[in-house]
Nucleic acid binder design. Structure first.
Lengths: 127, 127
DNA sequence: CAGGATCCTAGTGGATACTG
DNA sequence: CAGTATCCACTAGGATCCTG
C-alpha cells in the first residue's frame, strides 16, 4: 500500500497538486502569510503601511503574498481609485478563522518552546 | 514601528533565526514532516516501512526529516543492533500533541475546502 | 501610492550509487 | 536494512529599477 490518501486519522498526501491540505500547509509555512494575517487581525491596512511595518519584506513578496491570500479568499483587497491610489487590505471572515487556527499552533509552540530547545541542545551536544 | 515582535495577538517575526514560531511553521510547512507524523500516530514504524509506504520520498529526505523530528524531540528513534539492523521510529508524547494541533488545522482545511476552491476559481476566471 | 518587470541567489528537495 | 554521499534541478524569495 502506497500513501496517497491516509484515511486514519486524516488525509495527507505529498502530492503538490490537487491536495487541499498541501495548500494550507504551504500557506502556513511560507515566509510572510502568517505574519501579514496576524497584522490584519487588528484591522485593515494599506499596502504601504504593511510594507513599512513589516521588517525586510520586498514589494514583490508583499504583493505576491497578498495576491495569494486574496485568491484563497482569506484577504480582501479594496481599491479606492483616487490619485494617488489607495488600497486597503483586510481579513475576510474565513481568513479570521484561519488566523485563529494558527494562533492555536502558536500557543502550542510557546508551550513547548523549552522542551524543543532542550531537545535540540541535547541532540547537538552528543550525537 | 517595525515588526519584530507583534504583541497582539501573538508574536510573529520574519526573522529566521531565534524565532520559536518560525521553527514550528517551517516544520509544519515542509514537505514530509506532517505526513510522517501522521503515519506514526498509528504506531511505531521501521525506516524501510516508512520508505515503502510514503509515495515518492527519497531515502535522503526520509532520513533528513526523521532526524529533524528527532532533534526537536517529536520523534523517537530506537535502534535494535541486530544484523541487519532494525530501527523503529515512534512519536513522542509531545510529537503526539503537535500532531493533534495539525489535525485541527486539517479540520479547518476540510471545512473550508469548498470556499477556498470557489474563491480561487472566481479569482482566476475574472481578474 | 501601489505595484510590475527583471535578474539573481540560496536553500529545499530529487535521483542515484554506494556502504557498514 | 538503514542509511551516506554526490550531484543536480527547481523555486521561493531577495534586490532593484521602473510606471500608471
Amino acid at each position: 500500500m502506497s500513501v496517497r490518501h491516509i484515511d486514519v486519522p486524516y488525509s495527507v498526501s505529498a502530492n503538490t497538486d490537487n491536495c487541499l491540505l498541501r495548500g494550507v500547509l504551504d500557506r502556513v509555512g511560507d515566509k510572510w502569510s502568517v505574519l501579514i494575517m496576524s497584522l490584519l487581525l487588528d484591522g485593515p491596512r494599506r499596502y504601504s503601511d504593511l510594507r513599512r511595518v513589516i521588517d525586510g519584506i520586498s514589494p514583490r513578496m508583499l504583493t505576491l503574498t497578498l495576491r495569494g491570500l486574496e485568491r484563497d479568499g482569506l484577504v480582501l483587497r479594496k481599491v479606492t481609485p483616487t490619485t494617488p491610489p489607495k488600497v486597503d487590505y483586510s481579513l475576510t471572515q474565513v481568513g479570521r478563522t484561519l488566523s485563529g487556527q494558527v494562533s492555536e499552533l502558536i500557543g502550542w509552540a510557546e508551550q513547548h518552546y523549552a522542551y524543543i530547545s532542550d531537545s535540540r541542545r541535547r541532540y547537538d551536544e552528543k550525537g
